[in-house]
Design a binder for these strands. Structure first.
Length: 216
DNA sequence: TCGTCCTCTAAAAGGATCTT
DNA sequence: AAGATCCTTTTAGAGGACGA
C-alpha cells in the first residue's frame, strides 16, 4: 500500500511518477494502476464484454506497460500511452478468443454480467437496460462512446488513441448516440423505464395516507 | 456493371463555456 | 458584454463493399 507521503500528496503528474518509477521507485506503479483501473476496465469491457477476461487483459497490459516504461518517450501523455497498450492487448485477446471460439464452434456470450462499477451510480434496472443498449453498439462506436461519454476523455485524446481523425471521432460518437436513442426508445415506449411498480405505488399511497390521517 | 448501403472526411452552423 | 474557443450536430460528397 502506498502512503500519501510517498506520492507527495498526489501533486505529482503521471509523467513525473513514471520518471520516478523508472529511477527505481517501483512501488509508485500501484498509484498509477489505482488511478487508471476504472478507465481501463471500462474500455477493455467495451471491447471484450467479459469481466474476468477484461481483468486478465488489464493485468497483462499493466505488466507490458511496466516492462516498457523505460522506453516511454513522453510523446503523448502517460494515460494515452497506457490506454493504447490496453486497447492493443484487448484487441489481441479478442482475436485469440475468436480463433479459439471458431475452433470449438462455441457461442460467444455477448451479455454483460451483473456486477459492474457503474452499478453504484445508476438505478439498477436502468443500468441493466443501458448496459444492454451499449453492448448492442458495433465495437467501433462503442469504444468511442465509452471513451468520450463514460470516461470523459477529450476528442484529442480519443482520436490519438484510436488513430482516427477528429471528425471521425465526432461522427462515431454521434452515431453511437443515435443508435442508443433508437435502442432505448424500445424500452421507454413500452413503459419499461420509470415503471411505477406495485411496491412503489404502495409506498406512495401509504405515505400519503399516513400524512392525511395525521392531519385529520 | 450498376445501384444501394455504409463509412469516412470536411465544412458549416449554432450553442455552451471561458476569457478578457 | 463581446470575442474566442470548444463541442455538437447536420449536411454533402467521395469511395469501398456487396448483392442483383
Amino acid at each position: 500500500m502506498i502512503t500519501k507521503k510517498q506520492i507527495d500528496n498526489n501533486t505529482l503528474s503521471d509523467e513525473e511518477i513514471v520518471k520516478r518509477i523508472v529511477n527505481g521507485e517501483s512501488y509508485l506503479y500501484e498509484h498509477l494502476m489505482r488511478k487508471f483501473n476504472l478507465r481501463l476496465f471500462r474500455i477493455s469491457m467495451s471491447i471484450i464484454n467479459d469481466e474476468m477476461e477484461a481483468d486478465d487483459v488489464m493485468q497483462t497490459a499493466y505488466i507490458n506497460a511496466y516492462m516498457q516504461l523505460s522506453n516511454f518517450q513522453h510523446k503523448s501523455s502517460f494515460s494515452t500511452w497506457l490506454t493504447r497498450i490496453l486497447i492493443n492487448e484487448s484487441l489481441l485477446h479478442k482475436k485469440r478468443k475468436l480463433k479459439q471460439t471458431q475452433l470449438l464452434a462455441a457461442q460467444t456470450d455477448n451479455e454483460y454480467s451483473n456486477d459492474n462499477p457503474l452499478r453504484r451510480l445508476m438505478n439498477k434496472e436502468l443500468k441493466v437496460i443501458l448496459e444492454k443498449a451499449v453492448s448492442t453498439l458495433p465495437e467501433k462506436y462503442r469504444l468511442v462512446f465509452v471513451m468520450r461519454e463514460i470516461e470523459e476523455m477529450s476528442v484529442n485524446e480519443t482520436m490519438e488513441i484510436l488513430n482516427l481523425g477528429e471528425s471521425n471521432v465526432k461522427v462515431r460518437l454521434n452515431r453511437a448516440k443515435e443508435m442508443l436513442r433508437s435502442e432505448l426508445s424500445i424500452y421507454y415506449k413500452t413503459n419499461e423505464v420509470f415503471e411505477f411498480n406495485l411496491i412503489r405505488c404502495d409506498r406512495v399511497v401509504n405515505f400519503v395516507m399516513n400524512k392525511i390521517n395525521k392531519e385529520s
